[in-house]
């Protein structure tokens, strides 16, 4: 089955064609990230940019796959969570396309789509698994009992891990997005040079907190009268990155041990961080667990993972009507699919 996946939940306009739930025929992502004086993207505002980009991005995805619109057999679109104005652009376009082609439409949860990066990376991966979804807006530990059956074991209580990178980058005068910049600048640094806090590190607690780390960085800079320079700056960034990655990896492994799963996996934009990928791989191998680290292009927002969730839902006979609603939060929209997602 040929499924078009569309994501407009935040700053990227993305579309992809997925064949039979595993072969990515094309994937096109237009990032709206614009360097802004405030150290964040200008969401431009996102919904207007999505309106401008959605048709050309979908057309390019179809063209890149060597297909015609009439070849499509279903349309999957992110319907939650996200900015309602942004989600509406993707959902409205998807509805119109599905209606005009007479094919099914299915609404997809953005977080579930991040979980499916692992399935696209390794379709035969063993379940159950613990999946760490870490991005700019979310940081969650999810027990994947089966595809479509999840329990969220922990979440961030304040800042998401990607937000910690971006806000610390802002404090240090780095360009947005700060995640890749910090990773690059931290290379060769001593991760133990600065003692930054890891919050809520009690075994059995799977929640995260990165707000205290952000504040600790702020005071470390203020105490010195400015950010460190040279090798010390490299060490400073390496130590900060280590604090984030340490909390993420430690809790992922604790959750895996507690749940007794054979596999750990990664998803979300922060999963593009090399240090996180390496540390989780090492920890999992030491514990004798399988580890699934998806390609970076599957971790950051993309349409392929949306199509993959859509295919899985269609396989279970789940479709959405043309009255598909979008929602800023997950809980509201999930109620309608309780027990299945």
């Amino acid at each position: 089955m040929l499924v078009l996946g569309i994501d407009t939940s935040c700053d990227e306009t993305a579309a992809a064609l997925l064949l039979d739930g595993r072969d990515i025929l094309s994937s096109v992502v237009a990032s709206q990230a614009i360097h802004a004086e405030f150290g964040g993207v200008v969401p431009e505002h996102a919904s207007r940019a999505h309106i401008r980009l959605i048709a050309p991005i979908v057309e390019k995805a179809i063209e890149d796959a060597g297909k015609e619109a009439s070849d499509l057999e279903a349309v999957a679109v992110t319907s939650r969570p996200g900015l309602v104005g942004c989600l509406l652009v993707g959902a409205s376009y998807a509805k119109a396309l599905a209606y005009s082609l007479g094919i099914p439409l299915v609404g997809v949860d953005h977080i579930e789509a991040h979980v499916f990066a692992a399935r696209l990376e390794r379709p035969e991966m063993r379940l159950p698994a613990i999946c760490l979804v870490a991005s700019g807006g979310h940081t969650e530990l999810i027990l994947v009992k089966d595809w479509g059956r999840y329990t969220t074991l922990g979440r961030t209580r304040d800042d998401a891990s990607g937000e910690a990178f971006d806000k610390v980058g802002k404090l240090l005068g780095l360009d947005y997005p700060a995640g890749p910049a910090i990773e690059k600048l931290a290379r060769g640094g001593n991760p133990k040079a600065f003692d930054f806090p890891r919050a809520m590190m009690q075994r059995g607690n799977f929640d995260f907190s990165f707000s205290g780390l952000k504040t600790a960085v702020r005071y470390a800079v203020e105490d010195r009268g400015g950010r460190p320079e040279g090798q010390e700056f490299t060490d400073f960034l390496a130590s900060f990155q280590e604090a984030v990655v340490d909390a993420l990896v430690t809790k992922t492994m604790w959750a895996a041990a507690e749940a007794g799963v054979p596999t750990v996996a990664l998803g979300g934009g922060v999963a593009a961080n090399t240090h996180l990928r390496e540390r989780l791989t090492e920890a999992a191998e030491r514990a004798g667990l399988d580890v699934v680290i998806p390609a970076r292009s599957l971790c950051t927002d993309n349409g392929a993972v949306v199509a993959a969730v859509g295919q899985a839902l269609l396989d279970r006979g789940i479709t959405s009507g043309l009255d598909l609603d979008v929602s800023a939060s997950r809980e509201d929209a999930r109620a309608g699919r309780e027990g299945t997602a």
Partner: peptide
Amino acid sequence: SSPTFVIVNEYRGLVDIHHVDLYR
């Protein structure tokens, strides 16, 4: 949690709570 990235978090309490962040 911080709505910085998503801009708006919605919570359902005794009333609807719109937790908005204009940082970006």
